[in-house]
């Protein structure tokens, strides 16, 4: 604000007093608009509003995008996990099936038939020869059942550790997101 000369200032005060005094006494004067000491620029008010709206929208979009990205990553991971889980279970079942098939192929009747086809004949007692092998004992020691000590679970998490863990998870997710080129 520019400095007004003393006389001009007094004149201004008088004018204000007069207007205010009249406003208190004369209703007609009251309807006179109060002029601002420093007039507002005409473009300033809508710009402020727009800026606030834009800011809020930006924050909302940012949070929404983050949420969407997070949700997408979670869903994708979920699908991948389910797929891996299914694969694991399928493989386990396939292994069991395979073992059963092998056992069926090893059926004594099948083996005997195959052996006969290959020209083998059942051995008799006369076909066997026994020899003394020094130091060899066909009696194997029966392994003693052993018990592993049961692990004792101790709760040793600290607040600091927990915060660090959460921070690490957040960082990891962020890095993952960055590495994926920001794609969800």
């Amino acid at each position: 604000m520019a400095h007004l000369p003393r006389d001009a200032l007094s004149a201004r005060r008088e004018e204000i007093d007069r207007v205010y005094c009249c406003a208190m006494t004369d209703k007609r004067e009251l309807s006179t608009p109060i002029r601002q000491a420093v007039p507002q620029m005409p473009w300033r008010s809508p710009a402020q509003t727009v800026a606030i709206i834009v800011l809020i929208a930006s924050v909302a979009i940012f949070i929404g995008a983050l949420y969407l990205a997070q949700a997408t990553v979670t869903a994708t991971t979920g699908i991948n996990l389910l797929e891996l889980q299914r694969t694991r279970e399928f493989l386990q079942r396939a292994i069991s099936d395979m073992q059963a098939q092998i056992a069926q192929q090893r059926n004594i009747n099948t083996l005997r038939g195959r052996a006969q086809q290959l020209g083998f004949a059942p051995a008799t007692a006369k076909d066997l020869e026994y020899i003394v092998v020094e130091g060899y004992s066909p009696v194997r020691a029966t392994p003693t059942p052993f018990l592993l000590p049961t692990p004792t679970l101790v709760y040793d998490e600290t607040f600091e550790g927990w915060v660090r863990q959460q921070w690490d998870i957040l960082l990891r997710q962020f890095e993952q997101w960055m590495n994926s080129g920001g794609a969800p």
Binding site: R93, S96, D97, Q99, A100, I102, A103, R106
Partner: peptide
């Protein structure tokens, strides 16, 4: 659980 003979030959197995 499966059932084996003394030499590890499968006698009772699981399939799906």
């Amino acid at each position: 659980g499966r059932i084996f003979d003394r030499n590890g030959e499968l006698l009772a197995a699981n399939t799906t």
